[in-house]
Simulated scan of single mutants.
Amino acid sequence: MTKFYNGTKLLSLKDLNGNTPEIYISTSNRSAGKTTYFNKLCFSKYLKNNEEFMILYRFNYELSECNHKFFDDIKTLFFSNYEVEMKMHARGKFAELIENEHTIGWAVCLNDADIIKKYSHVFCNVTRILFDEFQSETNHYCNDEIKKFISIHQSVARGGGKQSRYVPVYMIGNFVSLLNPYYTKLGISNRLNINTNYMRGTGWVLEQNLNESACKAQEDSIFNQAFADDNYIKYSAQKAYLNDNDAFIQKIEGKSTYIATINVFGVDYAIREYDCGVVYCDHGIDKGFPLKISVTTENHQVNYIMLNKSSYIVSQLRFYFERGIFRFKDLECKQAIMTMLSY
């Protein structure tokens, strides 16, 4: 049993079309050693080949002390004779990582993608991007996060005298949610299950790893044993997604009455009431049904009414949800209803 994570296999995989991927997604239970492995990889590549790297955060405040966040652990373990300092640029919008007066890399945040675009020439020597914690445990993502993620990669990849060059992205995370925006956009959510170890797509490869050593260490923790039944402890130690719950996800058949079409983040969902006494959400919408509700303001469109959280419809559906009357075709449908009822 390997005690700590090793990404050699993931990085050796080809994508679904037999090409070298540009996105590598590594997920596992907590404390497996993913961050240490990829931080070491980036710094080692700099030492060996003078290759600069980029660390990607989500929000600007995370840039604070990013040199220590990146280097302190691997310094203790592997690079005790080195020191990494940082220097802020563009009034604190991005940071330069420096070792012995030489630039080794940069730290930027997704939310400042427009600023990074204006400084794209600065990053012309970046050869890889590291995005740790790409899944938010609290579902706190940037507005238009995928758009900003793509923008930053394009800002980096167009440098070095090329319109587009190969710049791999290492995305590291724990088992948080199958419905995170990256899985949804890449079409991973509908394909992935908890038994999957490796998956390929167009331009990307994914790994789900259960580190048994980390799992045992979490289970042996006296503190964790006190909260053994808590979902967060299960997520930390096991191959389980923190924010996902398969309860009430099933296929319903029989006679039904169409209630409404709801639109959540630009996607339509159908709500039906079945004669067996359950209310069901799926993707089989009735395009001719007159009641269409926009849940999110940014996706309000013609022939849809805006959702009012105090409306009779919402109150009634919340009543059904709280009493376990709702059923869902899949996790996406369940998330759509939860989003609606939270507004």
Rank of each mutant, 00 (worst) to 15 (best):
221 S>K: 08
218 Q>I: 15
255 K>H: 12
221 S>N: 08
220 D>E: 13
227 F>A: 03
238 Q>S: 14
213 S>I: 10
219 E>A: 10
243 N>D: 02
233 I>V: 15
239 K>I: 04
220 D>Y: 09
246 D>T: 08
225 Q>I: 05
220 D>H: 09
232 Y>V: 12
218 Q>V: 15
248 F>W: 10
219 E>D: 14
233 I>R: 07
242 L>D: 03
244 D>A: 00
231 N>D: 08
234 K>V: 03
235 Y>T: 08
223 F>S: 07
242 L>F: 10
233 I>L: 05
217 A>N: 09
263 N>M: 09
218 Q>D: 15
206 L>C: 03
252 I>R: 04
210 L>C: 02
252 I>S: 01
211 N>W: 06
215 C>R: 15
221 S>R: 08
246 D>G: 01
218 Q>P: 02
225 Q>T: 01
234 K>W: 05
209 N>H: 14
266 G>I: 10
253 E>C: 05
209 N>C: 09
219 E>W: 13
266 G>N: 07
222 I>W: 12
229 D>G: 01
226 A>L: 14
212 E>Y: 14
214 A>N: 03
229 D>K: 10
207 E>I: 06
244 D>F: 00
218 Q>T: 14
215 C>L: 15
266 G>Y: 14
238 Q>L: 15
222 I>F: 14
225 Q>L: 10
211 N>E: 05
253 E>F: 12
249 I>E: 02
251 K>Y: 08
240 A>Y: 11
211 N>C: 14
